[in-house]
């Protein structure tokens, strides 16, 4: 009886949270799944069921393929830049933690993560500007041909990767710093006694022991990489003057299909594809980085 009461109490206590979670998370996902098999223009009361037609059209749609390719390149590009760089930066900051400037190092790395996205992207737009940007001024100064950063199909994607990595770095460094602080000092002391150098300790002790942190940071970075939108949008903002080349990414394509082309069902099928990709990649990452003991 007492056990049942306890169980009931636990259920009642968790119910509000579950209800909120169901309302703000489960219901929208279910609704997106449902919409993806319907044809709906957001305005009409008619919402005919069309089965897998949206998905069949998706893989013949050159703009979707372009958006998917660009998004994947950006997401993996950000991952490849962010993980090693944040690990090295966190290690450097950690080993300089007794320095008077330690707080300054941490703050300066973390600031890009908390700076509002649009003004930051506008600043980067200026940095990449082909005519007035400091980046091309620097290249010219060292004798390199200036580049049309925001207009070239390849360079414009690189610009988005740089901007996203710059923003993701602060959070990743912070998480790695927490990881470094939890590593047992005795192991490093033992390694030192055995003659291991600093880089060797970093490579053979820190990196393997930080695997769970790397898993978490890489999942978060990759998922946010696949959700890239505002960075690509602002870098090509269509203001009077010199709008850049629009790097088509999945979220941008979805928004365009939903609210400009009035194809909400079709956009929902794109969202489902994005969901499946992110789920699959997360599972793969868990598989690759899981500890042999079975715990991530």
């Amino acid at each position: 009886m007492l056990r049942r009461k306890r169980w009931l109490f636990a259920l009642m206590a968790i119910l509000p949270t579950l209800a909120i979670f169901a309302w703000v998370r489960v219901y929208p996902i279910w609704e997106t799944l449902r919409l993806s098999v319907h044809k709906w223009d957001i305005l009409s009361k008619n919402k005919p069921f069309i089965g897998m037609a949206n998905f069949q059209e998706l893989f013949r749609d050159r703009l979707f393929i372009e958006a998917l390719t660009n998004t994947a390149i950006i997401a993996f590009g950000v991952l490849l830049v962010t993980i090693p760089l944040s690990l090295v930066l966190a290690a450097l900051i950690h080993y300089r933690s007794r320095s008077r400037l330690a707080a300054f190092y941490e703050t300066s790395v973390f600031i890009p993560h908390v700076v509002s996205l649009v003004p930051a992207a506008m600043a980067w737009k200026w940095i990449f500007d082909a005519k007035l940007g400091p980046l091309n001024a620097l290249l010219t100064f060292v004798g390199i041909e200036p580049q049309a950063w925001l207009f070239d199909p390849v360079l414009s994607i690189i610009c988005v990767i740089v901007l996203c990595s710059w923003q993701a770095l602060g959070y990743a460094v912070l998480i790695y710093l927490v990881g470094f602080k939890s590593l047992p000092v005795s192991l490093y002391e033992a390694a030192k006694l055995d003659g291991a150098s600093g880089p060797q300790s970093f490579w053979f002790l820190s990196i393997p022991m930080l695997k769970p942190i790397t898993l978490y940071v890489s999942v978060v970075t990759l998922v946010s990489g696949f959700n890239v939108y505002a960075q690509a949008y602002v870098l090509a903002s269509d203001a009077q003057g010199a709008p850049g080349r629009q790097v088509r990414v999945l979220v941008l394509d979805m928004l365009e299909n939903s609210f400009r082309n009035y194809r909400v069902g079709y956009a929902a099928s794109e969202a489902v594809v994005l969901l499946l990709i992110v789920l699959l990649l997360t599972l793969v990452q868990f598989g690759l980085l899981r500890d042999k003991g079975g715990r991530a």
Binding site: K131, A148, Q240, G241, R245
Partner: peptide
């Protein structure tokens, strides 16, 4: 004209 040159009303 080039793609990257300032354009439109602002230019």
């Amino acid at each position: 004209v080039t793609v990257e040159m300032p354009a439109d009303a602002e230019a």
